[in-house]
Design a binder for these strands. Structure first.
Lengths: 239, 239
DNA sequence: CGACGCTTTGACACAACTCAACAACCGTGG
DNA sequence: CCACGGTTGTTGAGTTGTGTCAAAGCGTCG
């Protein structure tokens, strides 16, 4: 299996042990990894070509654009995450994806996807599991925007990101690279860019965390978790 | 197949034609329908008993409680919807479910769920599809809270609800029964109950819609859709 | 060097929240 | 039958969090 295609396999493996045969199939599903430039849109909302991708390296975001031009970012896929899984199943994509940094993606052949699910049911279950985890993240995001104020919300966001990145070895306990600027953060957190700035300053002045030069530094994990109402998730799978 | 168990089947059938055998299995998965009283909690957050339910009649909501006691409602399952599908796959339930009116539910035997997915792959695909649709709703909700103001958000909410209810024959073009009070609406819309009241008044005074005595009346669909940025969804499935 | 993208800051406006009170509606029980 | 308490809806006044506008600081890159 090509090295790049292995990211997804590693992830699904945490849910259930996959056989040689299943792993091979998973690998065949993925095209040769392709480089993508920042700003490139992988999927446009409303698009009907049922495309899916697996992010191998780099940062991306999925979002919806409102009529007035503002946008809401739904989430930030990190390496190993599926992009546009839903658009394969539903007829059209209900949101857009674009790449934020130089990235590497494998596209997934959607036409081969459905038969695969039928042929390798365990793989289907694993994918269902991955989709569930993704939905859980969206739910947490929804709760955050609905019932946390800007400060709590931002604290929670960076903690959750830290945890996800740690799982794929892209973060230490207290620091990680984060190429998201304040405009992007604003669209994710449901705030204005200017307010994000104010909030980041507060977090900095209270000695909780710093975002500078694309690097997140968490100074006081405990206090930050208390502020953001963050709870370490048990993300192990079943069976 | 018991009449009550058919709700789900009808829904999945809109995605793909299911065989006799598959339908039968689907029916066997569901327990005898049980009555549930308002306020009853079906699933508690953090609970590890992997239970899932299918709502047959009545209204329910799924939500998360914050440390400070406030809550965010994620969504309102309506008849035919799955409750707690994710908690079967992830180890623990990440949010709570409770019933708002007198309701009828079938519980789904989770231990039989996983083997079933392996044995009836097409059923697994159908369930994956249903899960995708549910996630799309959560995403739309997220966008609403993040980037729409109270008025737009409320308009959008009642339109989306109308559309969903219409699919199961519980709404006409312009009216439906809606037993949600302003406190519940507030927790769903990420607002305070008092502000919901003001918003409802505005909608009423502008001749757009009325919520009175548990009945929603849409006076001007077009204007309401324009206000809420609502787009009729194509919800047909693939294959 | 200037242009550009991103960050930072201040002053002000406004949407939504809080608190407090009251009104309408209900089922219950005297 | 009416009085009652509980729930839900309604309204006003004042506060606060967040958005908007405007402008300046700072790096980087061509």
């Amino acid at each position: 299996m090509p090295a790049a295609a292995r990211v997804l396999a590693v992830k699904l493996n945490t849910f259930m042990q996959l056989s040689e045969r299943e792993l091979e199939c998973l690998a065949q599903l993925q095209s040769k990894p392709a480089h993508v430039k920042p700003g490139h849109a992988l999927v446009e909302e409303g698009q009907t070509g049922h495309k899916a991708f697996i992010l191998q390296a780099g940062w991306a975001c999925c979002f919806k654009i409102m009529r007035d031009g503002s946008r809401q970012i739904i989430g930030f896929p990190i390496p190993g995450d599926c992009i546009g899984l839903r658009s394969v199943l539903l007829r059209t994509s209900d949101h857009s994806f674009s790449v934020l940094t130089d990235a590497i993606v494998c596209s997934v052949d959607a036409s081969r996807m459905m038969p695969l699910l039928t042929e390798f049911p365990r793989l289907a279950a694993a994918i269902l599991w991955a989709a569930s985890r993704e939905e859980a993240m969206v739910v947490e995001h929804l709760v955050s925007i609905g019932r946390r104020n800007a400060l709590e919300r931002t604290a929670h966001f960076f903690l959750e990101l830290a945890e996800r990145l740690r799982l794929v070895g892209m973060a230490t306990e207290t620091t990680y690279a984060c190429p998201l600027n304040q405009y992007v953060l604003a669209d994710a957190l449901g705030l204005s860019a200017i307010h994000v700035n104010r909030v980041l300053r507060q977090l900095r002045e209270q000695g909780l965390m710093t975002l500078k030069g694309g690097q997140v530094l968490i100074h006081d994990v405990e206090a930050l978790e208390r502020l953001g109402g963050f709870e370490q998730q048990d993300r192990a799978g079943a069976t």
